[in-house]
């Protein structure tokens, strides 16, 4: 594997909430994505995946930690110095209902990145190719529509097209295919896979473990602002060590209606980052919690095969 493109080191992100204080949505996350690699970030909703990606784009309030892009520290760069980096580092936003300007036609949304970065030659052609690559064919059918005139999956593909129009070197994809059906999804992921082979680095945030299992090299599992397990895909899926990962895998629905499997549905509310439990942050919901878990905060430690780590001493 080559040099890491994007490195996130010990990232802490705090959102101000009310007058009272700060919510630590991300609390000490480290990960790295190399050129030509796809890393999947999975985890409960609200655990800080989007915040991590946005912080990597310098769009969330970073309290501490480092973001490095191609080895250069960009944690404190001003917006002018960030501009060239923002051409190479693209973010596909999670919610295509919110992230497309309702007053922009498809054409304008996809052209916008090209205009911002002053790419003048063959704008129209680039825009069309991006739409085609994202599976919106023929582009003419969509160019003059507003977002509200598109289906959910079509909006998502417009987002993808806008991100690909600049031919980025690093892609942060926040649930890029959540609204796409299996065949379109396979097409988009196949495209990302091809681009990846040409050197694109991808950090893919997804809830879909089956997708992560098929396309990612590595999987990082997040829980309440921390990475609790990470490793090569086959390891994490085939030999999950952290009880949270195990539970997560057990509830992935199966295609056969007669085979329900043994889902281990965790009870209790989604944990609140404003109120992090002491000790292991998973202990109130952990099916195998021990006394020590209430007080000792476990760190990522090697578990199983090489490169596989989990934050649970009983893993």
């Amino acid at each position: 594997m080559s040099e890491p493109l994007l490195e996130i080191e010990d990232l802490v992100v705090g959102y101000r909430q009310g007058r009272k204080g700060v919510v630590q949505a991300v609390d000490g996350v480290s990960l790295a994505v190399a050129a030509g690699a796809m890393v999947a970030l999975v985890g409960e909703s609200g655990c800080g995946k989007t915040t991590t990606a946005q912080a990597a784009m310098r769009m969330a309030p970073i309290a501490s930690g480092r973001i490095r892009y191609r080895g250069a520290d960009i944690t404190a760069l001003g917006s002018r110095a960030l501009r060239p980096i923002r051409r190479e580092l693209q973010l596909i936003f999670q919610d295509p209902y919110e992230s497309l300007d309702p007053r922009f036609r498809v054409r304008d949304t996809v052209l916008e990145p090209l205009q911002i970065h002053g790419i003048a030659d063959d704008r129209e052609g680039r825009m069309r190719r991006a739409l085609e690559r994202a599976g919106l064919t023929p582009p003419e059918l969509y160019l003059d529509r507003y977002p509200h005139e598109l289906s959910g999956g079509q909006r998502q593909r417009v987002s993808i097209a806008a991100a690909l129009a600049l031919e980025p070197t690093m892609l942060l994809a926040d649930e890029p295919v959540s609204m796409l059906d299996v065949s379109v999804r396979a097409g988009i992921l196949g495209l990302l896979d091809d681009l990846r082979r040409d050197g694109l680095g991808v950090l893919m945030i997804t809830h879909d473990l089956s997708t992560a299992a098929r396309y990612a090299d590595r999987i990082c599992v997040m829980y309440l602002g921390r990475i609790v397990e990470e490793g090569p895909t086959a390891e994490v899926i085939g030999d999950p060590r952290h009880p949270y990962t195990q539970a997560l895998l057990s509830v992935v629905p199966r295609p056969d209606p007669d085979d329900a499997g043994e889902p281990r549905i965790l009870r209790g509310e989604t944990p609140n980052p404003a109120d992090v439990p002491t000790g292991c942050r998973f202990h109130p919901r952990c099916p195998v919690a021990q006394d020590r878990c209430r007080t000792d905060d476990p760190v990522l430690a090697p578990a199983g095969a090489a490169g596989h780590r989990a934050a649970c001493p009983y893993a």
Partner: peptide
């Protein structure tokens, strides 16, 4: 938009509501 765990909880909830309240449900999904 949900992770599989919350998805499982929500589906459990929707199944319970349809069973207990006789709610009829159309679930659009891919």
């Amino acid at each position: 938009a949900l992770d599989v765990m919350v998805q499982a909880q929500i589906l459990e909830l929707l199944v319970r509501l349809t069973d207990e309240l006789g709610l009829a449900m159309v679930l659009v999904t891919h």
